[in-house]
């Protein structure tokens, strides 16, 4: 455990907690981008440069912007008078706490993490492209198909229906 890991993990967790806890939705998204950026920095620290930069492109870039658009189109921006947590929030909090307790217990007493860490592995973009084009070519094609279908489906679902009042 290094100092940089501690700083990045604290930044990421703080951003995510703020994203889930703030009242104003736009502030939530701002905190969320901070959390996603911290997560990308954690990926970079683990030596996964390609995944870290993909995280920045996809999450900080696309998903955050998409969410901001959804917030603006549903008119949820701005301060709200109603309580932000649902009426059954105690139950949800208890369930989440219990899940974390079980996971932490398993990690602490598990055997998977007892080995000494191996040296930093190499994962250049060339190797990743090589793997994508040879060993993982079928999953790549399926993901392309899935993305196309999902984007067309999203447009169809969100499109104004005929005869519906705007």
């Amino acid at each position: 455990m290094t100092i940089s890991f501690l700083i990045l993990a604290t930044l990421m967790i703080a951003g995510m907690v703020a994203a889930m806890g703030m009242r104003n939705l736009v502030h939530c998204i701002l905190a969320l981008t901070l959390g996603f950026a911290g997560l990308a920095a954690l990926y970079l620290q683990l030596g996964a440069q390609f995944v870290g930069l993909t995280q920045i492109l996809v999450y900080v870039g696309a998903v955050a912007i998409l969410t901001v658009f959804a917030i603006m189109m549903t008119g949820s921006a701005g301060p709200i008078a109603l309580p932000v947590f649902s009426s059954t929030w105690t139950m949800g909090g208890v369930v989440a706490g219990a899940v974390f307790a079980v996971l932490a217990w398993t990690i602490h007493f598990g055997t998977a993490s007892r080995k000494s860490p191996p040296p930093q592995p190499e994962a250049t973009v060339r190797q990743i492209g090589d793997a994508l084009m040879h060993r993982f070519v079928l999953p790549l094609e399926i993901i392309g198909l899935l993305l196309t279908a999902a984007l067309i489906g999203a447009v169809l679902v969100a499109m104004q229906e005929k005869g519906e009042t705007p």
Binding site: M16, M20, S86, A96, V99
Partner: peptide, 9 residues
């Protein structure tokens, strides 16, 4: 757990 708590509450 943070994500789960947010999704549930």
């Amino acid at each position: 757990s943070i994500g789960l708590a947010g999704a549930l509450t």
